[in-house]
Simulated scan of single mutants.
Amino acid sequence: MSDDRLPHEKGFHVSWDQIHRDARALAWRLDKHGPGPEGAWRGIIAITRGGMAPAMIIARELDIREIDTISVKSYDWQQQADAVVLKAPNAEFMGPEGEGILVIDDLVDTGKTLELVRKLYPKAHFATVYAKPKGREMVDTYVTEVSQDTWIFFPWDMALQYVRPYRGD
Rank of each mutant, 00 (worst) to 15 (best):
A23K: 01
R24P: 08
R24I: 08
R24K: 15
R24S: 14
R24A: 13
A25W: 15
A25S: 03
L26Q: 04
L26W: 06
A27V: 05
W28T: 04
R29L: 09
R29F: 10
R29V: 02
L30P: 04
D31M: 14
D31I: 04
D31L: 05
K32Y: 00
G34T: 10
P35D: 00
G36D: 09
G36H: 11
G36F: 12
P37S: 01
P37D: 06
P37H: 02
E38R: 11
G39H: 08
G39T: 12
G39I: 13
A40C: 04
A40F: 10
A40W: 09
A40G: 04
W41T: 10
R42C: 08
I45A: 11
I45W: 00
A46S: 13
A46P: 06
I47V: 07
I47L: 09
T48S: 11
R49G: 08
R49P: 13
G50T: 09
G50E: 05
G51I: 03
G51W: 04
G51F: 13
A53W: 00
A53I: 00
M56E: 11
M56W: 02
M56Y: 11
I57C: 06
I57L: 10
I57R: 03
I58C: 02
A59R: 11
R60F: 07
E61R: 01
E61P: 05
L62E: 09
D63V: 01
D63K: 13
I64H: 05
R65F: 09
R65N: 13
R65Y: 06
E66S: 13
T69W: 07
I70E: 08
I70D: 04
S71C: 15
S71E: 13
V72C: 10
V72M: 14
V72R: 01
K73D: 10
K73Y: 05
Y75D: 14
Y75S: 11
D76I: 14
D76A: 08
D76K: 10
W77N: 08
Q78F: 12
Q80C: 00
Q80M: 10
Q80A: 02
A81E: 15
D82T: 15
D82Q: 14
A83F: 14
A83G: 13
A83Q: 01
A83W: 15
L86Y: 15
L86R: 13
A88I: 07
P89E: 10
